[in-house]
Structure formats: structure tokens, C-alpha cells
Computed example of a mutant assay.
Amino acid sequence: MLEFAIEYRKALDEISGDRSLNLRKYELSSEEWEIASELCNVFKDATLFFSRSTPNLATVIPAMDHIDETLATNALDSRYRPSIHAALSIGKRTLNRYYNLTDNSEVYRIAMVLHPRHKLNYFKSAGWEDGWIEAAKEIVTEEFARSYASKDDVLEPFVGSKDVVR
């Protein structure tokens, strides 16, 4: 939709500039059109990032958190007109719809917890609720028990080690 708006900028400027339609508050300045173009590029980059043929699951949650934070911060910025606020809010709502879908698959949390850089510390530093962090830990522990607990040769190096999900 943002690409459409940018493509039809001239028509949208005319419509929002027509006083009889009472849409002046949605008229974008040149600076705001530039921001819209930048947002379009960000969303396009994000789409391409998440559409790669070999996505890295451990990067999905941090990327979504970054985009969500950027949208939320800018949506509250008083420098922007209501039209930019509306676009940012729509983008945030759309992102959150996809973000919520990650709850339907345990693999995202497992990938995060087992990632050497993230582990549970990512969730803590990102401000996740304690219940969510504990649930992520339980998911990994249960999957490990289900898949590997009966295999003594695989378990031996980890017996007594708390570094697996810390």
C-alpha cells in the first residue's frame, strides 16, 4: 500500500490539498514523503529478509523486535503528522500479526534459546515477561527430553551442565 501511495503521490497531494474534502490534516510535507519512501524501503528489506530461501530462525525474533521498536518509537514522535502516525500504526499492527504467529511454532523459541549468542539472555534483555521466558526454557527442556533423553551417548556431555539453556 505504501508503494501505491508513493507511486500516486501527485494524486494524493491533490486530494488531500482540496479544502472541500476536509483532508488537509492528512497532507504530507516533502519531508514526510521522504520518510514514507524510507519506510517503504525498510518494509521491502524486511520482506526480503524474511522471504530468503534459507532464513536463520534465530534472527527472526530480534529482527521483528527491532522493527517493532522502530515503528512504535516513531509512531509516538510528535514531529510527524497524523498520516505518518497512521502508516506507522498500520505497519506495527501488521508486524504484530506476524509476530504473534511465531507463538504457534516452538522452533523460534528453541532456535533462540540454543543460539550461542542469544540463549535466554536475549529474552531477559528484551524485557520479556518472566512467564514467557520460563515457557521458552520449558519448551527447550521438554524437546530435549523427548528427542535425546533416551540416548545416553548424546546426553553424556551435557549431564550436570547448566550451560545448555542458560
Rank of each mutant, 00 (worst) to 15 (best):
A5V: 09
I6R: 06
Y8I: 00
Y8H: 14
K10A: 08
D13E: 15
D13Q: 15
E14S: 14
E14K: 14
R19S: 09
S20H: 02
N22P: 00
R24Y: 12
K25M: 08
K25G: 00
K25Q: 13
Y26F: 10
E27M: 12
E27N: 15
E27A: 15
L28P: 11
E31L: 01
E32H: 02
W33Q: 04
I35N: 01
A36I: 08
A36Q: 05
C40D: 12
N41I: 05
N41W: 01
A46N: 03
A46I: 02
L48Y: 06
L48I: 10
N56Q: 14
N56S: 11
P62F: 13
A63Q: 04
H66G: 12
D68Q: 07
D68Y: 01
T70R: 09
T70D: 07
N74E: 05
N74Q: 08
A75K: 04
L76W: 06
D77F: 00
D77I: 03
R79A: 02
R81D: 05
A86E: 08
A87C: 14
A87D: 10
L88N: 06
S89H: 04
S89D: 10
I90F: 09
I90D: 07
K92R: 12
R93E: 06
R93A: 00
T94E: 11
N96G: 00
N96F: 10
R97K: 01
R97F: 03
Y98A: 02
D103N: 09
N104P: 00
S105K: 10
E106S: 08
V107W: 02
Y108Q: 00
R109T: 07
I110F: 03
I110H: 02
I110E: 07
A111F: 03
M112T: 13
H115D: 15
H118S: 13
N121G: 09
F123E: 05
F123Y: 10
K124E: 08
S125C: 09
W128N: 03
G131H: 06
I133G: 02
A135I: 03
A136R: 00
E138S: 15
T141C: 11
T141E: 09
T141H: 08
E142P: 01
E143R: 13
E143K: 13
A145L: 05
R146M: 06
R146V: 00
A149K: 05
A149V: 07
A149C: 10
K151Y: 09
D152Q: 14
D152F: 10
D152V: 15
D153K: 10
V154Y: 13
L155M: 15
L155N: 07
P157Y: 06
V159D: 05
V159P: 01
S161I: 05
D163E: 15
V165L: 11
R166L: 12
